[in-house]
Amino acid sequence: MSSSAGQPGSESNNSDHTAEVNPFEYELDLSWPQIVKIGIGAVILLPIRLFLTIFVLAAGLLMCHTVSLGLETNADGHYDEPITGWRRAVYNVLVPFLARLWLYVLGFWYIPFKGKLAKSDEAPIFVMAPHSSFMDGLVPLIFPNCYSAVTRFENRTVPMLGPLIDVVAPIYIRRERKESRQLAQQEIVRRTKQGGWPPIMIFVEGTCTNRRAMLPFKAGAFSPGAPVQPMILRYEGSPHCIWTTTHPLFLIFILYCTPMNNASVEFMEPVIPTEEEKKDAPLYAENVRRKMAKYLGIPLSSYRHRDFLRMQQLATEKKST
């Protein structure tokens, strides 16, 4: 890894007002040279990468069973206490190694980064936006002091990946249940105040977008009133890392068949809340959102996850008529 990356986006004035751009609509437009490369990759790269992926996941599952041996979670899937001792040592070494190995398998040969990763006592929460695919959760794992995350409870049941998610001590949330969202927020506050936990990474928009606008942030990440560090991922030249309206399985196929994929990471300076922001989580969230949108040079959006669900419903109804 290198300590340099591309320049941040221009500080456009468009970030200062709500945009009308739809943050969910996205059409994957592949050129003929790209299609030819994918076709060749399907014959040569796909079987090799699938075999190596099985190897990486099998090694990850072995690590998960070793680290979690004898540990129990509560009804919400949460650990009551942080993983410590030899378990934490194994976790901190093997998780970054296996994450980087899997990224090599996927064709992410070089991942430049810019800025400095804050220590957990400097910023116990990472906020990431825009969020566009599962790669957003994999790439940050290559850095030391692995994070836990807030993720959907359904991800716990994904074959092979579920135990890998479980071992990073995530905070699970059932988005359709209000009480689950409240419990997740309470758990974020508890871990932040208790200390000893790995940093918490939160996709503060709550859903995937096309990265063309910044959705309103969920206030849960800001409810502890603790410093947060904004983290930004870029996928220059890798349009298949945007999972909104195109089926994820097709995008995974393209990912595995593409010879070289690109990603870069940028750490912004930690944001220390004012006394007013500590008492007002929505205000804190909005101010951080504006900072990140200005840094990226993208507009703000008033769309939310429920709007995406409504779009999907309308599209389904249109197909059935």
Rank of each mutant, 00 (worst) to 15 (best):
L251Q: 13
E286A: 13
E266K: 13
L69N: 07
Y235I: 02
P33R: 09
T151Q: 10
G85C: 01
L61W: 14
Q186D: 12
P227E: 10
I272W: 06
M135N: 01
A42D: 06
P82T: 06
W243G: 00
L45A: 08
E11P: 09
A118E: 06
P270C: 05
F250N: 09
R175K: 09
N287G: 10
V265G: 04
R211P: 09
L45F: 07
Q194T: 10
I111A: 01
D307C: 09
I142F: 03
A58P: 00
K37L: 11
D29H: 15
A58F: 11
T66Y: 14
I38R: 05
R175W: 03
P140A: 09
Q229D: 11
N155W: 10
I44R: 10
Y26A: 08
E187R: 13
T209A: 04
K114V: 11
F222L: 02
E154N: 09
P248F: 00
A213K: 04
E317G: 13
A169P: 03
Y91T: 02
G220E: 06
L57C: 10
D136T: 06
I171D: 07
A59Y: 06
V95H: 07
L215Q: 03
S238G: 03
A293C: 07
S2V: 10
M268K: 06
S301I: 02
I298S: 08
Y147N: 08
T244G: 05
R306D: 04
Q185V: 11
F134D: 00
S148M: 12
S320G: 02
N13H: 13
S264Y: 13
F97R: 12
L138T: 03
L141Y: 09
N145M: 14
I298H: 11
M201S: 03
P8Y: 09
H17Y: 12
D166K: 15
I44A: 11
G220P: 08
L52V: 09
M292L: 14
K218F: 00
R310V: 00
D280K: 10
F153S: 14
Y91H: 11
W86N: 01
L52G: 02
A221H: 13
T207M: 07
A293E: 03
G39C: 04
S120K: 15
V56K: 06
L161N: 02
R49K: 02
